[in-house]
């Protein structure tokens, strides 16, 4: 069985991520040990809460270096929610913070009004449809979202910030909210970031996790 490691750095709903992995027949290893992370076949970096706090928790425990070395092996690496956002070069939630820098770009606050100035509730909390970007269908099909038609399924989002990469071709999926397109998933090299919570997105989320395990 392939070794799937869930990073335990004190931030994130690790219980639910492990439960969802068990549901699809995996035996996740929840760990904060560098050697176990380095030896993993696949890793998942969860995360909830504020960007700065999560990044600080990672860096203060030296995980940024461990994850960087893992990333360089080319093995599959998934970030969920703030675990995705931290892969960006920069975050602005509660002050400026440097991220892990796997993907160039920033983590920006979700616009709080529609184009015609109506208020949109933030955080964005909903089951948003996952939609491929224009021209991004091939990338979508090769990713853990592949197999679903663009727009055919939805997943659970809860976030106030979203990733805005410099290179738009890294965007794997978007979701519409208040007339704005928010980044729902990013794929770059061996990193896949999901803004939604696959562990809380029912059978759809489990299928995404299953496909990540099959990469």
């Amino acid at each position: 069985m392939s070794k799937i490691v869930v990073i335990d750095y004190g931030i994130g709903n690790v219980f639910s991520v492990c439960n969802a992995l068990r549901k699809i027949g995996e035996d996740p290893l929840l760990t904060n040990k560098s050697a176990e992370i380095a030896a993993a076949d696949r890793i998942i970096l969860p995360g909830v809460g504020a960007f700065g706090k999560a990044v600080d928790a990672l860096k203060s425990q030296g995980f940024d270096e461990v994850l960087k070395r893992y990333k360089e092996t080319g093995r599959p690496f998934m970030g969920i929610c703030v675990g995705m956002q931290m892969a960006m070069s920069h975050g602005t939630e509660f002050g400026d913070h440097d991220g892990l820098g796997y993907v160039d770009g920033v983590v920006a606050r979700i616009p709080s009004v529609t184009d015609d100035e109506k208020i949109i509730p933030v955080p964005h909390i909903s089951w948003g449809r996952l939609v491929a970007t224009q021209g991004g269908e091939a990338k979508w099909n090769a990713s853990p979202l592949g197999g679903f038609q663009s727009g055919a399924v939805s997943a659970y989002f809860v976030h106030s910030y979203h990733c805005v990469p410099e290179d738009k071709s890294t965007i794997l999926a978007e979701t519409e909210y208040g007339g704005h397109r928010l980044t729902a998933a990013i794929g770059h090299e061996n990193f896949i970031g999901l803004q939604f919570h696959p562990e809380r997105s029912g059978e759809i989320g489990q299928r995404v996790l299953k496909r990540f395990m099959d990469l």
Partner: peptide, 8 residues
């Protein structure tokens, strides 16, 4: 419930 129900 959380180990059987995969919604928030």
């Amino acid at each position: 419930v959380a180990s059987q129900v995969f919604i928030p």
